[in-house]
Simulated assay, not measured.
Amino acid sequence: MKKLFIHKPFFRLLSPLFSGTLVYLLILLINNSVADLNENFFGQELYVCIGLAYLIQEYVRFSIVIFKRIARPSSFVYRIALQIVSTLMINIVLVSLAMHVYFTKVLLYSLNSRELLIFNSIFSVIALIYILLYVSHQFLFKINTEKLEKEEWARQEIEEDFVEFKRDINPMLLFESLEAILAIMKEDPDKAELVTDRFALVYRYFLSRKKDELVPVKEEVEILEELIQLLSELPYRKVSLGKVELGNTLTVPGSMLQLLELIMRTTIPSKNKSLVVDIKESENEIIFKYIHEEKINKNLNINDLKFLSKEFSYYASQPIQILHEEDFKTIHLPKLTLA
């Protein structure tokens, strides 16, 4: 779509044959009658018209390329107006010069104003048609580009909505919890009912808080404790909260829950040792700190927190940070407040 068909070699080779022949027919019809066409059709003037058509069309194509690369004037309308005027003026000069040389050097008589007007009028129309083709192609390309951009934007929006929906549903945690409930139900129905209540509470929070922009961090910690109890039934490293020192601050709904789940899934499973996560608050941050024992093929890095970074970027300029020390790993979330 970017390349106009007038620049293609096949069109450049064949188009002047037809346009030159058409010009010659028009001139014959102006100067003669229809009955004289059979006698005067094939002649030297036909090849002159075809040759002049090659000259004019190549010149107009060259002017289109030049004006496409010129940045000034910045207005598209002014640039097209300047292109039309300058192209037609140079086109008239080229046609007049070519006709003068042909009539004086080949036919050996001077060119009259009527014949010059006919040639200039017809070839100016051809040049104008070429420019209009270019302008229409530019408008069509612009419209199609805008449509493609809108479609791409809509596709990305749908994909983002789907990813966000999938993250809210958390299918991995969903199926693992249901499987754990089914396994516990066969051994201890009362415990299975308790696990089901925790499972329902966590998912109710995920789905009900989806439309909230920010939630109190203490409310998030309450659900976090329920999630830890639910995760204890899964075959991962057991997680527990250590020191929790938080004030009256806000956070993105589900951010602390998703972060704790990532920590659990990237830690080596152990039946005997629990993973203790401390949560404390500094002046501008909420800090998760734990002794890391991460899996060989899966460690927690900043790429795993892209979705959280995007959500926090709406409310804070400070980015999420992960600091990996020899024994400890700390994750710094921006502390959010309402101005």
Rank of each mutant, 00 (worst) to 15 (best):
N31I: 14
A81D: 00
N38T: 14
K105G: 06
F10Q: 05
L117H: 13
I80M: 06
F139Y: 06
L13D: 02
V48W: 06
L82Y: 08
F123H: 08
L25D: 10
L46S: 08
F119P: 01
L111R: 11
E58A: 10
Y109E: 12
L82N: 06
I129R: 01
Y130C: 02
V93W: 12
V65P: 00
L133V: 04
N32Y: 15
A53S: 13
L117T: 09
R69N: 00
I90S: 03
D36P: 13
L29S: 11
N40Q: 13
C49D: 10
S33L: 08
A127C: 01
L82E: 00
N38C: 12
S63G: 04
Y59K: 06
L46C: 04
V48T: 07
L28M: 11
Y134N: 04
L140S: 15
Y134C: 06
Y134F: 03
F10I: 14
S110H: 14
I50K: 12
L55S: 09
V125Y: 03
Y78I: 13
V106F: 15
L132G: 04
A53I: 11
L94N: 06
T104V: 11
K68D: 01
V93R: 03
I84F: 13
F141H: 11
Y109A: 09
K105R: 14
Y78F: 15
F11H: 13
L28S: 05
N40Y: 09
S63E: 01
S33R: 09
Q83T: 09
L132I: 15
L88D: 00
Y24R: 15
Q138S: 03
I66A: 04
L26S: 11
M89C: 12
F11N: 10
C49F: 06
I90P: 00
N40M: 11
F76G: 08
I80K: 07
L140F: 13
F119A: 11
L46Y: 05
I118V: 08
I143C: 08
Q138C: 10
L14K: 07
I66V: 02
V48R: 14
F67N: 00
R69K: 05
V60D: 03
I27H: 09
Y102C: 04
Y24E: 07
T104R: 10
I27F: 05
P16T: 15
D36F: 09
V77C: 02
F10L: 10
I66W: 04
L111W: 11
L88W: 00
F67M: 04
L97M: 08
F123N: 06
M89P: 01
S96M: 10
F103I: 06
